[in-house]
Amino acid sequence: MNKVVEINGLTKKYKDQIAVNNVSFMLEANKIYGLLGRNGAGKTTIMHMITAQAFPTSGELKVFGENPYENNRVLTQLCFIKESQKYPDNYRVIDVLDVSSTFFPNWDREFAFALIEDFRLPLKRRVKKLSRGMLSAVGIIVGLASRAPVTIFDEPYLGLDAVARGLFYDRLLDDYAENPRTIVLSTHLIDEVSKLLEHVIVINSGEVILNEDAEELRGQASTVVGAAAKAEAFAMGRTIIHRESMGGLASVTFMGRLDAEDRRQAEELGLEIAPVSLQQLVVHLTKSNHKNKEAVSL
């Protein structure tokens, strides 16, 4: 396996708060990753550290086998598009593209201009005057056209409508197929991107609570709905990640696939079985305040 990012025990503390707590994971070459979690979970801080824009308090961080800090062998291969990316006030869209073409060694000019057409961006307009959605489109274009071996998108589509977001997914997949590279999509909007992902890492309160192949996760949790007592009895001994009740009815969601025997049992108890989508799973795992760490050992 070709590891492009290796993180071991990474911790970032601010004065009175731990933003990232003992995080370990790795990214392999040419996969599309989802870095998921709620706002403020620590995703952005982790990405800032991977790209040497913030400094770890402790722990080990290697990108392409080296420390990324002030290291051009690493930095020239990274592109990090963040929601809060700043552009000089006097820059026009064309200036951003022009400068980006000199920053990113793999820049594809034609692709960049094709994307400009796709997103209907006014080349001569000053970035400062762009709408939120257009500003997001600028970031997306730089991220895609950079063709950086590790490209990170952090909440890249703020203000973009459904059509533009669909366009982003289309172009991303097309270009990824032709030019495979490691892509990290960080977002709290999981439903739209989940199908693009090959691997999912979920961050909650600064910790990794899930690190798993996306396909493994689909169908990994189940929900039973029925009489509260029976539903609870059925779920007993399983790792429950969500509970809802209404009158005597309850819906209990837990980790683990159900085999034929389980299904028969549920049927006998008069319980209905509902599938749990990847998004629902992540929402449940990150919603509860108590740590769901044990849920992760699949």
């Binding site: 669909g166 199908k195 992902l197 090959e198």
Partner: peptide, 18 residues
């Protein structure tokens, strides 16, 4: 092709290949 499937269904090409 795998990539055609991926583009058509907007899914990860590795998943389509699988």
């Amino acid at each position: 092709s795998t990539n055609q499937f991926a583009a058509f269904y907007q899914i990860n090409p590795a998943t389509a290949a699988k």
